[in-house]
């Protein structure tokens, strides 16, 4: 009996929809693809231009500044980076790092304002919640398909897919952080006659900061995991090594590249977490 109901043509609709968006909005996608692609190539060229030794020292110095009082972290970070260089994965590292940083930045630039809007309107929050759930539970691979449709293959579609996959935690935790502020502090702000902008900048965002930073940390970690997957659509980096090892069933190189990703993940995590805890 159930077989008598014709199949809902959802997949056809989706295909048509994406095709329509692709052609209708190519005037947006194409310049994004060009400019962002060029920008990222510049960044990568620039970073590769720095001698690896100097690069490692700079990262170690930065980590020493950020993570006050801890001597061990910079040393471990240095050792990790040296290992990646030693394994001949330096250029892959730079590619991945650039992709993560760009995806992370875009996610934050989009995510924080969306989170703020959500905290201000219950209707908008109700609307966004299921969308965010969908964005996060959809298998990450699925985002690669429209990404390719919009931007072809390469770095930019990788960034696009990462932003979609990685921005929900920032949006959510910005919203939550602002909503969790105690009523009395908001009243205190109002009672002194703050404008909505003053309240946001001087009271809400600073008070929600730990929560927002936790969101950003998660976003960047998700961006990293997506950037690795995006190697399937031609985003260069450590993921490419993993993918080609997988295709050739080479355990050794796959493991080494995987280790490189782990090291990068730890380094990024350290950085985003300490900037969270130091007030």
């Amino acid at each position: 009996m159930l077989d008598n109901i014709p199949r809902l043509p959802l997949s056809e609709w989706t295909t048509e929809f994406v095709r329509w968006i692709t052609s209708a909005f190519s005037f947006i996608f194409d310049p994004i693809n060009n400019y962002l692609g060029t920008l990222m190539n510049w960044i990568i060229t620039g970073l590769e231009f720095i001698p690896p030794v100097l690069f490692i020292i700079i990262i170690m110095a930065l980590s020493a500044i950020f993570m006050k009082k801890k001597v061990l972290s910079p040393i471990l970070i240095g050792i990790g980076l040296l290992f990646i260089y030693n394994q001949g994965l330096w250029e892959n590292l730079i590619d991945t790092m650039t992709l993560v940083i760009i995806s992370g930045l875009i996610s934050i630039v989009i995510g924080v304002p969306l989170g703020i809007l959500m905290s201000r309107s219950n209707t908008f929050e109700m609307l966004m919640k299921p969308i965010l759930d969908l964005m996060q539970t959809m298998p990450a691979f699925v985002y690669l398909i429209p990404a390719v449709a919009f931007f072809g293959i390469g770095m930019v579609p990788g960034v696009f897919a990462s932003v979609i996959f990685a921005s929900p935690p920032t949006i959510r935790l910005t919203n939550l952080g602002i909503r969790q502020i105690s009523e009395e502090l908001i009243e205190a702000s109002d009672s002194f006659g703050t404008t909505p902008m003053q309240k946001l900048l001087k009271v809400q965002l600073p008070l929600a900061r730990p929560s927002i930073m936790a969101g950003i940390n998660q976003t960047i970690m998700l961006a990293l995991s997506m950037v690795v997957i995006a190697s399937m659509i031609g985003a260069p980096g450590l993921g490419t090594e993993v993918l080609s090892s997988l295709q050739r069933a080479q355990v050794g190189p796959g493991f080494v590249a995987g280790l490189g990703i782990v090291i990068l993940a730890i380094i990024i995590d350290r950085f985003t977490q300490t900037s969270n805890s130091n007030k």
């Binding site: 105690s182 009395e184 502090l185 009243e187 205190a188 109002d190 009672s191 002194f192 006659g193 703050t194 404008t195 009271v203 600073p206 008070l207 900061r209 007030k279």
Partner: peptide
Amino acid sequence: ELREFRRKNFSMVFQSFALFPF
């Protein structure tokens, strides 16, 4: 007007202090 009215006329002290921790 309400903002201006509050700024000019009132200061408030709260039960659980409502100080900004940062």
